[in-house]
Design a protein around this nucleic acid. Structure first.
Lengths: 253, 253
DNA sequence: CGTTAGGTTGACTTGATTCAACAACAGTGG
DNA sequence: CCACTGTTGTTGAATCAAGTCAACCTAACG
């Protein structure tokens, strides 16, 4: 689906919405050494405690972060799409504090840690773009806390569906009308902090109410505004329009 | 408590555990322009939607991040201690996606956004240290998601108490034996995603079981190991020992 | 010394879990 | 090509953790 020549294409495109890169910056990214691998669905990409020597870039497919409590309950923390580095932390922190798993079969590019560290050191603007990425990830985590902490299952599910819709749409992988959501009901439960049985009931309820229409794992959203409202979804936290303000000048949006 | 000359002391000390700074780096931080202010408990430091022109550094006191859902429920997202910049996002993202409030009366230093941006641009290592800070914040958010999503109220409360204990201890503001936790039971509830009534019952239960001893808002931990176990607390995610690995060489811990 | 915020407690309700059974479906191997 | 097996989805009944409502208590404070 994604040819070799375009491995870093999505990443560069994303970074360019975050910081004005020059051609040397772009080239430095394109020049990153990497090794392509295929990871089957559900296989681990990073394990808690790992001290990885390579960072993983998702080229194709979806992946998710998760953590397991001492008594075995799993909590999904975020979902990632092509163009995302899923363990930059591995290059910058000592060890991984959580797991990363492939949601679907993934094509990933493994980039040596040293190359990432050198890129960061030598290309300030690229580093800046990556940093902004981690800030936005942080913002998404915060909203996720609100979702599991303060919304009931129905609202939380709608919110989650809205988030996926907007993020997939923004990256050209679906429309506001509908999209493929390749998660099992158990995984949805792990994302929302509820049981799969309850996920099932909520989904059917939303279906019955006409808030969504399902066909296998394809979700159609007949009335975006209604779904948005039930989920209390406000997309600001995704910072989809994020562009770095020009330094030292009062840039206007 | 903190004299003018030491405004950036804690911040520098923190950054030095994250990256090898040279004297020019340190000086650049000390030279940051700022304005000192006092913020009363519960007053807002940043409001969602703000486009702040200054970043706020906590010099003394505690602050917390929070978000309010459409139907008025508040979720506390994190608690911050002296030395933390509580709205770096304000300098790097377009607008604030959440609120920051003073937990206790705070002394804060307001640093102009442009000065922060310039510091980041000119002092790569300082920027790096700050970035690592945002990565660690991200890690704490992830654990917080697990806490509200997958732990019952009792375990979540113990986990929260453990987190505070370790963080306060690490910054010299309390010992593992006990510490001042200046949060109302309502605020604790907002942090855990439960009602203040339930917080009360859980705290009394923990008290009765001998897991904690309370005196006003001072919490004593007679048996750390027991509390740790009930909370399923593993401090790795705090990255308290974080030191940046030497670039391009196989540094050993 | 009244006012207010925070803490405590009981009775009742509810959203979500648990347990258990079964249906639909995909993949596998005989 | 079909039986076997495992995963995912569906449903009902019973139970439980947490929420709601409401009252009252206490300490701090102007």
């Amino acid at each position: 689906m994604t040819s070799i020549g375009q491995i870093f294409e999505r990443t560069v495109r994303k970074f360019e919405t975050r910081e004005q890169l020059d051609s040397a910056d772009r080239q430095a990214i394109y020049d990153l050494p990497y090794e392509l691998h295929t990871v089957e669905a559900n296989r681990y990409i990073v394990r808690e405690g790992d001290r990885p020597t390579r960072s993983t870039l998702i080229v194709d497919g979806l992946a998710f972060r998760q953590k397991v409590t001492v008594d075995g309950a799993r909590q999904i923390l975020s979902v990632h799409i092509p163009g995302d580095f899923v363990d930059l932390e591995g290059s910058l922190l000592r060890y991984a504090d959580h797991n990363v798993q492939a949601l679907t079969r993934c094509q990933v590019a493994l980039v040596p840690r040293d190359a990432i560290v050198e890129l960061i050191r030598s290309r300030g603007k690229v580093a800046h773009a990556m940093w902004i990425d981690t800030l936005i990830d942080g913002s998404i985590y915060r909203e996720w806390i609100v979702n599991v902490g303060r919304r009931d299952a129905r609202a939380a599910m709608c919110h989650l569906l809205c988030e996926f819709a907007r993020r997939l749409e923004a990256s050209g992988m679906g429309s506001s009308g509908g999209y493929e959501l390749p998660m099992s009901q158990e995984q949805l439960g792990d994302a929302l902090g509820i049981t799969p049985v309850h996920v099932n009931r909520i989904l059917r309820e939303l279906d019955r109410e006409g808030l969504i229409e399902r066909e296998k794992r394809f979700v159609r959203v007949p009335n975006w505004e209604k779904l948005r409202k039930v989920g209390g979804f406000n997309e600001n936290y995704l910072h989809l329009d994020q562009v770095i303000p020009r330094p030292l000048s009062a840039a206007r949006a």
